[in-house]
Amino acid sequence: MKYEDIKKSLKNKTVGIAGCGGLGSNCAVALARTGIGKLIIADFDIIEESNLNRQYYFYDQIGQPKATALKTNIERINPETIVESHLIMLDANNIPSVFKDCDVIVEAFDKTETKEMIMKVVSHKMPEKYLIMGIGMAGWGANNLFTDKHFDKLIICGDGVNEIRDDNPPLAPRVGIVANMQANVVLEILLGKNNNQIS
């Protein structure tokens, strides 16, 4: 597939990004760069200095809502990607309406409770949607641990073992790897398997 054809097929596609932290901000930027037509992003949180070790924000954006700053950053990268930004805390009630027009939803929460919540909401209330989750990304090194696991329309990217803790913090490289794996799975769903590639 030539890049022009890739852009043409992504132009009319919409991807939901649930959370605009390390996974969400980096995944959204990768998809915007690739030429996705529309992103629906949602987060209630404000950018803090401690986020800048992995999240796609700038020092002068500290204090801004993440969902607002991410829309700005994406528009600076690719103004052709439409960004619908929601400054809300996602929950079981609003997820179906916020993401109803999405072809694929990317889970980018930090807490296990919200990861479980979106998994169940999508499965129960929007079973036709793909959900791409990120699980296991703390620390550094161990590239060989990263995989994606497919369970019907639920796909899990990450190393599956390294939980974020005070003594095993999230850092840009591994968080970025998982965010980009999620974006990569989104492309595989939207464009189909790449037949020209050795895999």
Binding site: D110, T112, G134, I135, M137, I156, G158, N162, E163
Partner: peptide, 10 residues
């Protein structure tokens, strides 16, 4: 049967 374990982080 699918058994998944969720981990904090994102």
């Amino acid at each position: 049967l699918v058994v998944l374990h969720l981990l904090a982080g994102g």
